[in-house]
């Protein structure tokens, strides 16, 4: 399958090697290029299937026309505003956790190339620890270890569950961003460091002016992938009682008296919402990966 695509992939690599030998430039490492046939990518037809499930599963209700039961479609429409509110909450959690995780993760990576040995060790251990821990466990830790409020001087800051969930989810994001930044930094030829250092740039200047600007392009696709994964992981927060979309769906179903014919349409709707949100991100990531695959 996909022999045509594989051929273009191989050709891309060949073109690159030829280019290098011609210019005699040090080989600049390619960002790991995902195969065009990656089966785990979201495809448009996944969304179509989901949408049809929602509609089709709602139809039997019309046919049944039992006066005592409201039609599935009506029920779904009635709950939709609340469910969508829940989804907005998922988005808020994912964006916040991503923001915190990105900043702390970048700092963690810079710590790992610090000149101070103790800082370096601490940053390394932290990265490895959080990268190899299940997300749900980290979420539980944040939930039960963080207090419900913090007192700073006379000020009392409440820590609601959703805020704790954001912190909990930002931990694995932090560790993964740290690794993404590492990959970006090591993919640059060491000559960039040497050239900048020989021009009397300070270490900080080398990092911020020379190394990181060149890495950002290479780091963007894996970073966006991570964001997609994080967004889908926000439903974990339902397990610890945050009122995001999954939690609200469960509550809506309970309020309807646990009708089993509602399960598939409701959860398909949840899937559909996540699909509509994550699919464009996945497409965009692929576009960027193609664009940055060969950098000279």
């Amino acid at each position: 399958m996909g022999t045509g695509l594989e051929n273009t992939w191989i050709w891309g690599v060949r073109d690159m090697t030829m280019k290098q030998t011609k210019n005699n430039v040090l080989p600049v490492m390619m960002a790991p290029r995902s195969r065009p046939t990656d089966p785990f990518r979201l495809k448009a037809w996944h969304g179509l299937i989901l949408a049809s499930i929602v509609v089709l599963a709602s139809i039997p209700a019309f046919a049944a026309e039992e006066p005592a039961k409201a039609s599935i479609f009506d029920v779904l429409v009635r709950w939709m505003p609340l469910l969508l509110e829940g989804f907005v909450f998922n988005v808020v959690i994912s964006i916040s956790a991503m923001a915190i995780g990105t900043i702390t993760g970048a700092a963690l990576r810079l710590g790992q190339i610090s000149l101070n040995g103790a800082v370096r060790k601490f940053a390394w251990v932290t990265t490895q620890f959080f990268r190899n821990a299940p997300w749900l466990v980290l979420l539980f830790f944040a939930m039960f270890l963080l207090p419900f409020e913090i007192k700073i001087g006379g000020l009392t800051i409440p820590l609601p569950d959703w805020l704790k969930a954001i912190f909990g989810l930002s931990l694995p994001v932090m560790a993964n961003v740290s690794e993404i930044v590492r990959g970006g930094v090591v993919s640059l030829p060491s000559g960039q460091w040497e050239a900048a250092e020989s021009l009397a740039f300070s270490r900080t200047q080398v990092l911020w002016r020379i190394i990181l600007p060149q890495c950002v392009k290479r780091m963007l696709p894996p970073w966006m992938n991570l964001y997609s994964i994080l967004t889908m992981a926000t439903v974990l927060a339902s397990i610890v009682g945050v009122s995001e979309m999954m939690t609200l769906t469960g509550q809506a179903l309970a309020a309807e008296g646990g009708r089993s014919d509602l399960l598939i349409p409701f959860y398909s709707f949840v899937l559909l919402m996540f699909f509509i949100y994550c699919y464009p991100i996945a497409r965009w990531t692929i576009r960027l990966e193609k664009k940055f695959a060969v950098i000279n």
């Binding site: 430039v25 000559g191 040497e194 050239a195 021009l199 020379i210």
Partner: peptide
């Protein structure tokens, strides 16, 4: 390094 300039085999331009 402000006083010592250096040019490399691989140019190493930014």
């Amino acid at each position: 390094r402000k006083k010592v300039g250096m040019v490399f085999q691989q140019y190493n331009l930014f």
